[in-house]
């Protein structure tokens, strides 16, 4: 779900960078030195998970799991995912150097939203079922927001992109459902094995 170089207008790119750097700064401020290992290891984990592919018909979809990143990291997902996206841009040329700002906002922004959405849905001390459901909805919601963000950026750049943006949204609906299911399973697993990792704990 990266936007490639060359498409977006300079104002969109600039706005992307401003928002991305602001978000990364907020996340970095909330990362105490003792948190660095966790944030870094999770950032690395999310880098690795983007290599997971699910076959959808003739094509493959790469997992994004930004919802999960947000649930576990909150605002710290912004620097973690920014780094993961930067590494993807440098190592594999997914996205690009200038559009990195926008891509960060599109992917990491919904991650932060997913964190609060999960907390809202799960409440205090949910059972594994409720936690899983909250995780699934937050995961699907995060992907939905990311796709909506992509569509918005495209249409802001030029109204001629409307049809392309609309088809982008349609094409990603299966991915939203898949990510939702996977997030639900993952949250239930983490809940059973190490409840403290999910929001509601002190870290």
């Amino acid at each position: 779900m990266h936007i490639s170089e060359g498409i977006l207008s300079p104002p969109a790119l600039a706005a992307g960078w401003v928002c991305a750097l602001a978000g990364v700064a907020v996340g970095a401020r909330r990362t105490r030195p003792e948190d660095v290992p966790r944030v870094a290891l999770l950032g690395a984990a999310f880098f690795v998970t983007t290599f997971m592919r699910i076959p959808i018909g003739p094509a493959h979809a790469h997992l994004v799991v930004n919802g999960l990143a947000g649930i576990l990291l909150g605002w710290r997902a912004m620097p973690a995912l920014f780094i993961a996206l930067m590494l993807q841009a440098v190592l594999f040329q997914y996205g690009g150097p200038v559009v990195l700002g926008v891509n960060t906002v599109i992917i990491a922004g919904p991650a932060v939203l997913a964190h609060y959405f999960y907390r809202l849905l799960a409440g205090r001390a949910p059972g594994p079922g409720r936690a899983g459901m909250a995780g699934g909805l937050a995961g699907a919601g995060a992907v939905a927001c990311s796709v909506a963000g992509m569509a918005l950026c495209l249409t802001w750049t030029d109204p001629a992109f409307r049809a392309a943006a609309a088809s982008l949204v349609l094409v990603h609906i299966p991915l939203m459902l898949i990510e939702g299911m996977i997030s639900a399973v993952t949250v239930m697993f983490l809940y059973r094995v190490k409840k403290e990792l999910l929001p509601g704990s002190t870290w």
Binding site: A45, T49, M52, L63, V185, T186, F189, V193
Partner: peptide, 9 residues
């Protein structure tokens, strides 16, 4: 897949 992601995390 969910378990794989969970185990990795």
């Amino acid at each position: 897949h969910g378990l794989l992601v969970g185990a990795l995390l």
